[in-house]
Write a protein that binds this DNA or RNA. Structure first.
Lengths: 154, 154
DNA sequence: TTTTTAGTTTACAACTTAATAAACTATATA
DNA sequence: TATATAGTTTATTAAGTTGTAAACTAAAAA
């Protein structure tokens, strides 16, 4: 594949990643910045390079970069005697992705337990359904722990 | 717990569920309708009852109910010779929740593979990181399949 | 046939979010 | 000290979303 062709496809994926994060409640620029930092061959971008690549204002870049940094999606390195920040994605432990999901699912379980506790008829159709879900989540949790062990021993 | 106390707590959970769905990109009314159909002892509500309980316009109810039905979160039953619709949550196979997540995670894997394919340096920091994630997702998939088997045999 | 009921559609107002331009601040360089 | 650079903050505009009232449609009841 020629270099220009690759670049074109990379830019397309940036837009796709933009949409992906858009759907999950991020603002469009946030998704594009993450995309840029993920797909390009260059893996560090300065503030200025980001505004130029994505054609966005300094203000938007400033606000979104701060948000992404607070969320822990990106980070920057600095060099003393150089005021620029070199942004890159945070290459955290890949497990954290699953931990994040695990947390969400446990909060759903908690909510269902609360709902069940307040039900007058513990055997109604909804009650039975929610009980099944709670049960399923518990079993899932055990399996996820096994999965983590298996991965670490690999 | 007294009946009124229970009712009060149920209404509080409806608001909580509202916020939960709100955060996930649903409009506030959608979350509250789902909450209503989930937590109340009464497990079927007519269009009119929903507008009254939640104090919302017929128009909002109409639009949101249609959206939730298309998404497959709720459904309604009818009785011939009665024009009313009796709405209730869709008590689908609880596994579908996990299947939904599984699908999402596989689309993430696909995206990462696309990114990797376009990388000039397959051993860069980002490339290595994405490779690790892709690997992790593959192992996760196997474990989820075991989990499903285990649950079905229970 | 006329009226009532059940829900839909349309047009619009209120609000929220996203993004920008321009003014500003703080650090480094000349 | 003066100037340039790097990024932040503020005020504002543009665009999109949410929800309503009111007009409408279609089916059932009188």
């Amino acid at each position: 594949m020629k270099s220009e062709e690759r670049l074109l496809k990379q830019k397309q994926i940036i837009e796709e990643i933009g949409k992906f994060f858009d759907k999950r409640g991020f603002q469009p620029i946030a998704g594009r910045i993450l995309g840029l930092l993920m797909v390009m061959d260059k893996e560090q971008f300065t503030f200025e390079e980001i505004t130029e690549e994505l054609q966005i204002s300094k203000s938007s870049a400033s606000n979104v970069l701060r948000m992404l940094e607070i969320r822990g999606d990106i980070e920057y390195t600095t060099i003393s005697g150089d005021r620029k920040r070199y942004y890159h994605i945070k290459r955290q432990n890949a497990f954290e992705m699953f931990d994040e999901f695990e947390k969400q699912i446990l909060s759903i379980k908690k909510l269902f337990l609360q709902i069940l506790e307040l039900k007058e008829d513990k055997n109604s159709l909804n009650s039975s359904f929610f009980n099944e879900i709670v049960n399923l989540i518990s079993i899932h949790k055990e399996h996820i722990q096994e999965f983590k062990k298996a991965y670490k021993n690999n």
